[in-house]
Design a binder for these strands. Structure first.
Lengths: 244, 244
DNA sequence: TCTTGCGCCCATGTATACATTGCCTCGATC
DNA sequence: GATCGAGGCAATGTATACATGGGCGCAAGA
């Protein structure tokens, strides 16, 4: 995101609007009018426009035909597709890293991240330091995105990842209560390790396949939520803006 | 792009700035200052900002740390990566269309486009209606992007495609003189046909592989230009903004 | 000489008045 | 009754004045 967090009026408007969209306060399809928003946030129209323009870049708003902005509507099909897309792009990042070779220091960094993730698992089965895992899981995916050395790939991976429900951490909620989710962490960590191994061995196809399958964990968790226990929807912040 | 072509000052500024960037008049890394630009284009700063914001969405400008915009710099490595990325995304579009099944009317449309492309080839070898081919080639790729029915996929395919050197028509220059390029058209059209066949037969892996290989034609043409005949660089509009 | 701090200047940030456009409504006419 | 057009309103588009803040240079002191 931006480091300028909250310094200017435009930044505060950006953050506030993003919050409202992500929380579902502004449902998909809602047209955003400059004047009322400016009055609500007690600033002028100019920073509002700036903020909306940035949200359009993020993919949270669409530009309307005759000017103005509309909150982008996401359905569950879109969540599935975005997760699939993340798998494809991370797969490409992994494959290219394998085929072209990753820089030694980047490989060292990602290996160290995998070690740390290992440490998040306690001795007893099912014992996981969730918060730490979540943090270093994000770090793993960030490192993976740039591992091939291609700026274009890194940018596009990070772009998809920015959609909250497509983020690698989307289904790592604060409440680690969900047994199904917790079990998936072992599989996920196996895949992290295997990806790094494949990349180091220059096995591009394997690295790509692993990354795609890795993203499928998110899809399975999504399907669990939708089919088995819809009450969980509310505890997953990334799903708040998704419309039935 | 936008249908609003040139109606407002912001749109005219957008078009003018885009032209300057694509033509290389504004090389990568150039910082764009609002005041001088406003004076040059004889409008105020407001529509300039609007235009620059849209160019950032297009990926032609980057936002600078402390405000302002910088022309994004592309090297030949980036062109290669962007072409690769297009292949990956079109491959995903094709695979999903195969796996999920495409709508009959969309299939009919893309089949009709393939027929038309066939008609572009004359009786004598090497005889091609270039302009018509180029037009319907673009149509094929546009149709392919949406064939799976996924908006997310279609948007992202079209997004990458918007970079001029990554467009499916990037190496279909007006001058059809380049024998190597002309020969590649036969291969390309074979692949178009095969992709449609694979999608209809629900052969996802084959459809994906074909789309990726299809994009490689662009990469080969790029390499031909770079290695065999660098003088051709100037005749390919999409490469003007690429820096050595 | 090096460093530090003050101040100016330039570029973006913001507010606001005014322009423009497109849509909606209401009415009149066919 | 339907359609076309004029008018007004509401929204974005634009210009511009002023605010803010960061960078650079110069100068003064250590």
């Amino acid at each position: 995101m931006d480091d300028n967090t909250g310094k200017t009026h435009a930044m505060r408007a950006l953050i506030e609007l993003r919050k409202r969209i992500l929380s579902g306060d502004l449902p998909g399809g809602t047209r955003l009018f400059e004047v009322p928003l400016a009055e609500q946030l007690e600033i002028s129209r100019t920073p509002i426009r700036e903020a909306m323009s940035r949200l359009a870049e993020e993919g949270l708003l669409d530009r309307a035909r005759n000017g103005g902005f509309i909150v982008r509507a996401f359905g569950f099909d879109d969540v599935v597709d975005a997760i699939e897309l993340r798998g494809v792009l991370e797969g490409t990042a992994a494959r290219l890293a394998a085929e072209r070779g990753a820089k030694p220091d980047a490989m060292a960094r990602i290996r160290s991240i995998v070690e740390t993730l290992d440490d998040c698992f306690g001795d007893k089965p099912g014992e996981v330091d969730f918060e730490r895992y979540s943090e270093f899981n994000a770090a793993f995916h960030r490192e993976l995105a740039g591992l091939s050395g291609s700026d274009i790939i890194r940018r596009e991976v990070e772009r998809v990842t920015r959609l909250p429900f497509a983020s690698p951490s989307a289904f790592l909620p604060d409440n680690a209560e969900i047994e199904t989710f917790r079990r998936s962490l072992n599989t996920a960590q196996e895949q992290h390790r295997a990806m790094v191994t494949a990349i180091a061995a220059r096995e591009g196809a394997r690295a790509e396949a692993l990354a795609r399958e890795h993203a499928r964990i998110a899809r399975r968790n999504l399907e669990y939520v939708m089919v088995e226990d819809r009450s969980l929807i509310d505890s997953l912040p990334g799903l708040a803006l998704v419309m039935s």
